[in-house]
Amino acid sequence: MIRQHWYLVQQLARYEVISRYKGSLLGLLWMLVNPLMMLAVYGFVFTLVFNARWPGLIETDQTGFVLVLFSGLIVFSFASEAWTRAPSLLRENPSYVKKVIFPLYVLPIVALAPPLFQAVVSSAILLLGYLILIGPPPAAALLLPLVALIYVVVVLGVSYLLMTLGTFVPDLRHAVGTLMTVLLFVSPVFYPLAAIPAPLQPIVALNPLSFFLETTRALLFDGTPPRFHLWLIAFLGATLCLALGLLAFRKARDAFSDVL
């Protein structure tokens, strides 16, 4: 079905990205400024104020810590922005619901465009910093696009579910915003999974973000790919997540117009 409406998806996605900064002096340059500011602030706070160190890095390697931290923030921010917006997608566009010919299923896909574009820009900054401060990435880093693809599928599946539930429960958008703040600190963003007490590690590992955070850092900084069974679990989990999200959307599709 996505092929039938690919042109529509492209146009709406382009509009989503451009309209976000339309009217501002810097325009799309904000997508470059924002991650640089975030990198500078977190680097200052964690390396100079808290004097934090990442386990496994040389104690004096502050630049390495900043890059590791930045990579985790890129991964988390993509899901956070997409999921925070998802519950409001249909409520922001009630006219689309009334139009029988409009393919509502494209809305979560289109909504991924701004955070995905931002993640690409931030990743380019990360790669540039990596090349300057560390050198060429390990060969295992070539697997990062595959990790990103699986991750996008997971985020999209959850977005479908949140969009569906948010249409019937308006307060969900506020709850998700609060939940993402909590998730930022209970996910291994500012610390590795190994730093968590052993009894709690299996619980934190159930967080779907944990695999992608840990795998991204392992591929980029350690050159260590995950074991095959973890790839398989991630692939099957992403497929199941998307299937459940689409199923919930299709089951509730006819009731959207009654609510809105």
Rank of each mutant, 00 (worst) to 15 (best):
P108D: 02
V9A: 05
L183Q: 12
A40R: 03
G56P: 00
S257P: 05
A79Q: 13
S123N: 07
F168H: 08
V121H: 09
L149G: 14
C241F: 08
Y191K: 09
Y151A: 00
A13S: 11
V33F: 11
P199Q: 10
L36C: 10
S95T: 08
G72N: 07
L260N: 07
V106R: 08
R91S: 02
Q62T: 15
I134R: 07
Y105C: 11
A140P: 01
I150C: 14
L246Y: 08
V153I: 10
L193Y: 14
H229P: 08
L57G: 03
L89Y: 13
L200I: 00
H229L: 11
V189I: 12
L244C: 14
T181E: 13
L162T: 02
I134T: 02
F249P: 04
L206C: 03
L219P: 10
P192L: 04
T181G: 15
F50N: 08
M180S: 11
G166W: 03
V33P: 11
T47A: 09
Y151E: 00
L219M: 07
A40H: 06
A234R: 02
Y105V: 15
A218V: 04
S88E: 02
S77W: 11
S210N: 02
V106T: 04
L25H: 01
S159L: 03
Y96W: 15
L67Y: 10
